[in-house]
Structures are given as C-alpha cells and as structure tokens.
Design a binder for these strands. Structure first.
Length: 271
DNA sequence: CGGTTTTGACCTGCGC
DNA sequence: GCGCAGGTCAAAACCG
C-alpha cells in the first residue's frame, strides 16, 4: 500500500469515526425524547384532583403541581421532537440531556429475570435503602431508596414488583438530582427502562433515517397491565428495528466501517 | 472504621 | 377516637 493510499484510508476512517460519533449522539437524543415522553405519559395518566382515588395530603399537592406542569411539558416534548428530527436530517449532534432532566415524579417499568429476587433498578445513580414495607395490594415488598448524595440531593425512589407480573419492577422516582450521574455505566439500563412506553418508530433504511412518532398516546402507562403490554411492544419494535437494520446493506457497511475505524483508533492509542 | 442494609418501631393521614 | 396503610426513622448487623 502506498503512503498516499494509506493517507486516504486514514482520512476516510476519520470521517467515518466522526459520522459514527454523530450517530451515537442522535441515538442519545432519541432516548432522551423517549424518557421525556415517559414522564408525560405518567403525568397525564394521573387521576384528577376530584377523583375518588384515595390520596394523602402530600399526594394531592404533588398531583396539583404535576397538572400545572403538563402544558409546559407538552411544549418541551414538541420542541425537542422537532429539533431532533432536524438533527437527524442534517446529522447534527447537539445534546439535549441537560435541558430535559426530569423535574417531577415519574414511573418506570423494568423487566428483570424472574429468578432475580433483587429489587435493584440500575439507573446509573447510587441509592441507599432506608425502608421496606409490604403493601396491602401487593405481596412483594415495596423498597424505599434515597439518593446516596442525600441530604444534599432530595431524590427518592420506590421499587416494587408488579403484582400482575413479578418479572416487572415498578420504580417510582420523586424529585430531581442536583448532581451529575456518578457513573455512565448504568445509563443504558435507564434507557432500557424508559423505553417501556408507547411510541411508533419507523425506519427508512434507504436514506439512513429513523423517525420516532411520539404523538401516539392512546395507552396509559400508569396502569401496570398496560405497562407490561408496552414492554412487550418495545421488545417487538426492537426486534423489527434490528431485523430491518441488519437487512440493510448500507447500514451494515457503515457499521463495519465504524467498528473497524474504532479498532484502528484503539490500535493507534496502544501504540 | 465508615458506609450500607435490615427491620421493628414510630409517625402521619385518612376513613369510619 | 380508633384502626389501617403508607412512609420514615434509627439502632443493630453486616460488609469491604
């Protein structure tokens, strides 16, 4: 191989690396939108204040605040969605994470191994257990966690297995972390959790675009049974997406290039 | 030894 | 006022 050919290849690899980074960032944005959508679904699924749903005084206050925040959350989701669609089109990589950090209580559903008795939901943050209680409507104990950064960080979460499907962990988060995620390791787990809500995803492999339709809100994530259905929906969607992508020659070529580029980069670092 | 987990006791709100 | 249920506290045990 001539020096000129090697230089050309290296330039191309660098370009592919850059494109790969942009794609990763776009995927991050998509997951952020899904997380935001989850919050919206949870908020909109709360019963109205005058409903017969039994709540303590604290819960009533929380609901009032949540309803007040709904309009602005709708706007933010719409705005974020539009921005991400534009970003995908032009391969922009502006991050949205700081803008859409959750500010209210929200619930996530996580499917776990049935043999796994641990109530831990890995979400990248460190938690300290401070209580456990068996509730009336569920034989599985509800476990209470506080953020390890407490008392400076006010975030709490409750984790309980679903009464209907014990392979599903229902985690309810309250408050907002006032610090950065201590470790990026758990982030993919969080994304996994946060995909357990309805959305319509379509793939256009010919021009390498992915479109998320977040307008589909026919399902209510507050209902546990539907939460489980959504997990199944998510699984089917993921399979279809994977199937579509692996059949696409352009995607495969890009993936191979990206991986080989990364390997080349690692080799250079080691040298 | 310091941080975390366990677990029974205690507190609070709500319905009757 | 009483009982119930959910949430929190705090001392002891545990662990790295």
């Amino acid at each position: 191989m001539t020096e000129r050919e090697a230089g050309g290849l290296e330039t191309k690899l660098n370009e592919l690396n850059e494109e790969n980074k942009q794609l990763i960032k776009i995927i991050d944005e998509i997951h952020m939108i899904i997380a935001l959508q989850n919050q919206l679904m949870d908020l909109t699924s709360f019963p109205p204040a005058e409903s017969s749903f039994s709540m303590t005084g604290k819960r009533k206050i929380q609901n009032t605040e949540m309803n007040r925040n709904n309009d602005s959350l709708f706007d933010r989701i719409h705005e974020t969605r539009n921005q991400t669609e534009n970003d995908i089109t032009r391969h922009s990589c502006k991050r949205l994470r700081e803008d859409i950090e959750p500010n209210n209580a929200h619930t996530t559903y996580t499917r776990v191994d049935a043999s796994d008795s641990s109530p831990m939901v890995r979400d990248g943050y460190q938690w300290r257990k401070y209580g456990q209680k068996v509730t009336k409507d569920n034989p599985s104990p509800r476990v209470y966690f506080r953020c390890s950064y407490a008392p400076s960080c006010p975030v709490k979460k409750k984790v309980q297995r679903s009464a209907e499907d014990r392979t599903v962990l229902v985690a309810t988060y309250e408050g907002e972390h006032n610090h950065s995620r201590p470790s990026p390791v758990g982030f993919t787990d969080t994304m996994h959790e946060n995909t357990s809500h309805p959305y319509v995803m379509s793939l256009n492999s010919s021009n390498s675009t992915v479109t998320l339709d977040l307008t589909h809100q026919g399902l209510n994530s507050n209902n546990c049974d539907k939460g489980i259905e959504l997990i199944e929906l998510q699984r089917v969607l993921a399979e279809k997406i994977a199937s579509s992508l692996t059949k696409d020659e352009n995607f495969n070529a890009a993936l191979i290039s990206a991986i080989s580029g990364r390997m080349f980069q690692d080799t250079r670092v080691q040298n």
